[in-house]
Design a protein around this nucleic acid. Structure first.
Lengths: 110, 110
DNA sequence: GCACTCGTACGATGGTTGTCGTACAAGCGA
DNA sequence: TCGCTTGTACGACAACCATCGTACGAGTGC
């Protein structure tokens, strides 16, 4: 049977919008998620539950959805778990230097 | 008598918050304002009215206020006019590379 | 003085959003 | 099989926000 790895909708690289990305990153909880994701090894794909954020599960789902729809992260399903990765390459291609600048600032100040 | 140039409240450099800056820049109208401001000569200080944006005066005032309170721009009064400048140095000091990355992306894609 | 311009302040309004609780679907493991 | 875990979906709710119109205060120029 076919492996179900990508039934979750994601915007294509060319469709990424600066406003949406900035808006997604302007939320402290989401920025925290992205910073943690960025701190992971390249081949590591943490699940949603592995993020120890100060909100409930449903709020967490909401934030991941915002990040995914803005094109900041990519999600794929494995069993009941949902694996998350930063879309570094796509972001870098569309908005060179942006993610690095945000992450550097986010890490330095709280 | 003292010249009244700075009775308008601005956050200090150390008080600038990444979330607030990203949020301010995530609005297309405001991003447009900032991009125009960035395109000005260094010694040029355009007034609020010189921005040909697609919103009414009061909405314009609102957006300038958001940008000012986030620390993205500085405003000073001269007569009835209000002169605007980008806080390039402060932004660069707190969030190195961020403004440039945003502006570069904003200019490239509409 | 008087009209005009610049920009703010205030209130209203409709849309967006961050948060949560509950219910549910799907896989994992004993 | 029977829980347990993962995460989503949906509804609710309060807070926020972008927008506008109107009214106003303060300079500017005739």
């Amino acid at each position: 049977m076919p492996q179900v790895t990508e039934e979750i909708p994601h915007p294509a690289r060319e469709q990424l919008e600066l406003s949406a990305v900035l808006h997604a990153l302007s939320e402290p909880v989401r920025l925290d998620m992205v910073a943690r994701l960025a701190a992971c090894e390249l081949d590591d794909e943490p699940t949603c539950g592995s993020f120890d954020v100060a909100v409930t599960k449903s709020t967490c789902t909401h934030h991941f959805k915002v990040l995914r729809e803005a094109g900041v992260i990519r999600q794929r399903q494995r069993g009941t778990a949902r694996l998350n990765t930063l879309r570094r390459d796509d972001l870098e291609a569309r908005f060179p230097g942006l993610l690095d600048a945000v992450l550097r600032s986010a890490v330095v100040h709280g």
